[in-house]
């Protein structure tokens, strides 16, 4: 599904990604953990096609295609979804309107007929119910005045409507109360399928209690330092990151 080889990128002239290698197969859930500022968000944003991040080397194959050659909107239509760490507010732009436009852009690219307002409404209402979201969020501006947790729920709602092949969720679990965490986990789990992959960027084991990962990676200083199974996350929770970095020096 996703194969990243020796990916390097600069942000504002500074080298942040320093040779990332990662392979995620269809049907797998991977967790990426690592210290603040190590470049996790940079990685997922580079994958999503953020233009002001300069790629200086490496390659990425996504679902058989050269990911880095595609503009951001095409990556999305091709089935890549990024749940943002800090979802942006777009005042005055109707939340449902953006999502409908997104869904139809994707359907159009796939040669499918666009959904009309009626079909869309019944679809999104069902998903909102599943996510325990009030219908008033439909008519509000995109993330406009949403609380931190509401923004994260809204990201998952969008993901459920768009049904991506590859979902990159950047700290979608941060700032959630216990109930919201369970709802978000339920949303993520509902998307798990043999033909889909999910990459969770997280700082906490507690999300992984609900969404069990196939692989866990430690990301530090712009690259993946260590990979393992779910037990690695528990170890990190107990010991932090220092032992790994020391290990590298030694």
């Amino acid at each position: 599904m996703l194969k990243i080889s020796q990916l390097r990128a600069n942000v504002a002239g500074r080298n942040i990604l320093k040779g990332v290698d990662l392979e995620v197969h269809a049907g797998e859930v991977h967790a990426i953990m690592g210290p603040n500022g190590s470049g996790k968000s940079t990685l997922v944003q580079v994958l999503a096609g953020r233009e002001d991040y300069e790629i200086t080397g490496g390659s990425v194959v996504f679902d058989g295609a050269d990911l880095l050659a595609m503009p951001a909107e095409q990556r999305a239509r091709h089935g890549l979804f990024l749940g943002f760490q800090y979802p942006v507010e777009i005042p005055g732009v109707n939340n449902a309107y953006l999502l409908k436009a997104a869904l139809n852009a994707k359907r159009k690219a796939a040669g499918l007929p666009e959904v009309d307002a009626y079909e869309f409404l019944s679809l999104i209402k069902a998903k909102m119910k599943f996510m325990g979201m009030d219908e008033s969020f439909l008519s509000r501006g995109v993330n406009e005045g949403f609380s931190g947790g509401e923004k994260k729920r809204n990201e998952i709602l969008q993901m459920l409507v768009l049904e991506p092949k590859l979902a990159l969720l950047d700290e979608t679990d941060s700032g959630l109360d216990i109930d919201a965490l369970k709802v978000v986990a339920k949303g993520v789990n509902s998307l798990r399928a043999a033909d889909r992959s999910i990459v969770l960027v997280t700082h906490y084991q507690r999300l992984l209690d609900y969404v069990e990962p196939d692989r866990v990676h430690v990301f530090a200083d712009g690259r993946i330092l260590k990979s393992g199974d779910k037990s690695l996350a528990l170890e990190l929770e107990a010991r932090g990151y220092d032992w790994l970095r020391e290990g590298r020096v030694a």
């Binding site: 944003q45 999503a48 096609g49 953020r50 233009e51 503009p71 951001a72 909107e73 990556r75 999305a76 239509r77 979804f81 990024l82 943002f84 979802p87 942006v88 777009i90 005042p91 005055g92 732009v93 109707n94 309107y97 953006l98 999502l99 436009a101 997104a102 852009a105 994707k106 690219a109 501006g141 995109v142 969008q158 768009l162």
Partner: peptide
């Protein structure tokens, strides 16, 4: 970028943002 990431074209995204404004 948020709109692009959702698959919306740059032109449509600008229109949306401006209309919202």
């Amino acid at each position: 970028f948020y709109c692009l990431q959702r698959g919306v074209s740059a032109e449509d995204a600008v229109n949306m943002i401006v209309s919202g404004f």
